[in-house]
Design a protein around this nucleic acid. Structure first.
Length: 296
DNA sequence: AAAGCGGTCAACCGCTTTAGT
DNA sequence: GACTAAAGCGGTTGACCGCTT
């Protein structure tokens, strides 16, 4: 008689640090056969680990293309910008930092960036009252500066800790459900555009868009579809958030702001054609060799 | 020299989401 | 639709290391 899965004797799994031998066996196996179902990997490799542990080891350490070592200033700025935008969505953030894992980014955040942000917030908040009194009109600060408290959307508060439950329930782009929101998605990622799902770089943006699989990325899809444009574009524009494009439709806004061409794809909606990084970067504060481009 | 302390990082745990039946 | 297993994810833990006292 077959036992239920819950009644099967559970194999004793090894825990703790991985030995070089274990690494070698896992690496060889995955490179040769692919991981397939992770729970079968320990069986096939003879490793006394559970599938979950194998998966984690592969993703965080053995996977080819991982970038080890110090985070660059650009990477840190990317993380900070993304974290401001989407909170503790480490895997989403990691998708836009090629060669970095969510675990690595999370650790770096907790060990370093969190404090950096806290210090910055502290110092800027002390000068905030003075600054606020001086200028209430121009809100053209870049992403690194702190908006005044009444302008910080709930999920944009540069608090160092995880978003509240209320914050979590909102989408990253849920800027305007309850009152005026004074920000746009400040970042547009070339990484979305010039990488395929395996992380291979496309030689140019046009190639990237020939592969429509990018539209499966929910954020890319939202940004690229008319639904997103209709849902959010008007609100951004209506809040006077974009450089003088108030009242423009979402697609118009993105075309004019980013120099994008919108083109219809049957069954998908709109997709971005391609655009020159240099053209766009002329409107942003970062150079064309940086993968994150910010509105000014 | 060694105990204490804090920072970093790899790995685990438990919850949620997704896919298959 | 209900159930199950696998995968994905984020929070947390614990080992290790370097610095300070």
């Amino acid at each position: 008689m077959a036992l239920k899965s819950s009644e099967r004797p559970k194999p004793k799994h090894r825990k703790g640090l991985w030995s070089p031998d274990e690494d070698e066996r896992l690496r060889n196996y995955v490179l040769k056969h692919g991981h397939g179902c992770w729970s079968s990997v320990p069986i096939n490799t003879g490793l006394q680990r559970n599938g979950k542990s194998c998966r984690l080891r592969w993703i965080n350490y053995l996977r080819p293309g991982l970038k080890r070592g110090m985070f660059t200033v650009e990477e840190e700025e990317n993380i900070l910008s993304l974290h401001r935008l989407i909170g503790n969505k480490w895997s989403q953030i990691a998708k836009h930092l090629p060669g970095r894992t969510d675990n690595e980014i999370k650790n770096h955040w907790h060990s370093y960036l969190k404090k950096k942000v806290a210090n910055k917030t502290e110092s800027s908040s002390s000068s905030e009252a003075h600054h606020h009194a001086q200028s209430q009109c121009t809100n053209s600060d870049n992403a690194e500066s702190s908006p005044s408290p009444d302008q910080i959307p709930t999920n944009q508060n540069p608090s160092v800790d995880a978003p509240s439950q209320e914050q979590k329930e909102k989408t990253p782009f849920d800027f305007s459900r309850d009152g005026p929101r004074s920000f746009l998605p400040k970042i547009f990622f070339a990484e979305w555009l010039n990488q395929d799902e395996q992380g291979n770089n496309f030689p140019n943006y046009g190639d990237a868009f020939d592969d429509r699989s990018h539209l499966q990325d929910p954020l890319v899809h939202d940004l690229c579809t008319s639904d997103f444009a209709n849902s959010y574009g008007g609100e951004y524009a209506g809040n006077g958030l974009s450089n003088g494009s108030a009242g423009a439709s979402g697609s118009d806004m993105y075309s004019s702001q980013l120099g994008l061409e919108m083109d219809q794809v049957p069954g998908v909606g709109y997709y971005l054609d391609y655009f020159s990084g240099d053209d766009i970067c002329s409107q942003f504060e970062l150079g064309s060799d940086v993968n994150v481009m910010m509105y000014t």
